[in-house]
Design a protein around this nucleic acid. Structure first.
Lengths: 229, 229
DNA sequence: AAAAAACGAGCAAATGTTCGTTTTATTTGA
DNA sequence: TCAAATAAAACGAACATTTGCTCGTTTTTT
């Protein structure tokens, strides 16, 4: 495993591109937006404002007047870029899913070595959530503002991740590469360690620990928890 | 370590007692409540209603009319048991802090064996958060509805926990009982594993894993992550 | 009969959203 | 090349709801 955040970023750029362009592509038709240049800038301003305010007091507590003040866009102006408040949360969710899929699609092959695969899986997830930190945080914290269908979406994709981790541990055990006695539990804990990275990112900024260092520590933990030989 | 949840519960009963009585003791004066019997029942109904509704859609999104309907208490009736909406969140926070302190005060001594101490610390935290699951969940998820001072409170107590864990790991290393190469990281991860228990409790109910089993797995992880000898 | 608790219609303030108007950007035509 | 004309985007006061909360009254308890 020697994928670094830097090389990951290049991949991301290539496969996903820019988050605001992405939003434009997904919603310009529905919203009757013509000018790509203007619209992407506005999306950036607005969504970053939403991230800021909802981080401070939560999405529900953020009022459209707050957002208008924060972004310096009038109430009427704002409503050109979404059809109602709840749709903002929906757009952020859909955008994140879209980008995550575009980014992980590359790696659908299965490598021979389950230990390698597990490391790769974990590292990629950390790097993706580093790149889309605020998106991940928002979706986790504000998912109750979403429709039921979308919540099911989130739970399913979390479950998918946990299962993917578990399978690699079981494979490694089967191939006698590791000796993990509580694979279910370890898989669950590894998933939580992934979440920690974007939920408490301020802690790691304070401690001066970057994504690469976090991954290194994480993989060391995997090594111990699964008793890799 | 052979503290079980059952024996912990007895301790809790003895030192803390009942959460609704606790709320009555803390607030009956300020709220001019005379009848203990009636008031504790109402507190139970109301706070459990708050837990249910804010779990569904968040505290901010819960309206007093929702709460009135859920608890089958009129708007005016509700306001006998708190002075305004924000105070509900405050009461839950203060109540939890009060109970946690009452419960942990017992164990302020320092044992000789840091490994034993660490195990005890973790187990007690899991058991406490099991007993007060909904309180912990609420405080974590809704802390943005609290005043700044109280938020600082929460962060401080989290930091305190992490430091306590870290100290035991360092002690164990120093006494050559363990060989942990990344104690800071491991301490942070152990704290997240504690949070997992109350944040995703539904997962473990589904998987039929109780607090005792979770603790067993957690301590096994400590053993591996710190390379106890 | 006096005190405590519960009621719920009603008030003022806040909030999401709209829409007629103004400003800015783009296209057209001479 | 540069106005005139058209389209797109931004504005923000105004509207209908919603929301937190009160208070005069009624019901229940002591």
């Amino acid at each position: 495993m020697n994928l670094t955040y830097e090389t990951f970023l290049q991949e991301f750029e290539q496969w996903v591109g820019d988050e605001w362009q992405c939003l434009f592509d997904m919603y310009h038709q529905k919203l009757n937006l013509k000018n790509r240049n203007i619209a992407t800038k506005k999306f950036k301003t607005i969504i970053e404002g939403v991230f800021k305010l909802s981080h401070q007091k939560g999405f529900q507590a953020m009022t459209m007047r707050d957002l208008s003040q924060e972004t310096e866009i009038s109430m009427g102006g704002l409503y050109n870029y979404f059809s109602n408040k709840d749709q903002i949360a929906e757009m952020i969710h859909a955008g994140m899913v879209h980008m995550a899929e575009a980014c992980l699609k590359i790696k659908e092959y299965r490598h021979k070595d389950p230990v390698f695969e597990l490391n790769e899986l974990l590292a990629r997830h950390i790097f993706l959530s580093e790149r889309l930190k605020k998106w991940f945080y928002f979706v986790f914290m504000e998912c109750r503002s979403l429709e039921r269908e979308l919540i099911a979406d989130i739970i399913a994709s979390e479950q998918f991740m946990e299962t993917a981790i578990l399978e690699r541990i079981l494979d490694a055990n089967a191939q006698n590469l590791s000796q993990c006695h509580n694979p279910d539990f370890v898989a669950a804990m590894l998933k939580v360690m992934l979440q920690e990275w974007y939920l408490k990112s301020w802690k790691y900024i304070e401690k001066d620990i970057n994504a690469d260092q976090y991954v290194a520590n994480l993989l060391l933990s995997v090594y111990h928890l699964t008793q890799v030989k």
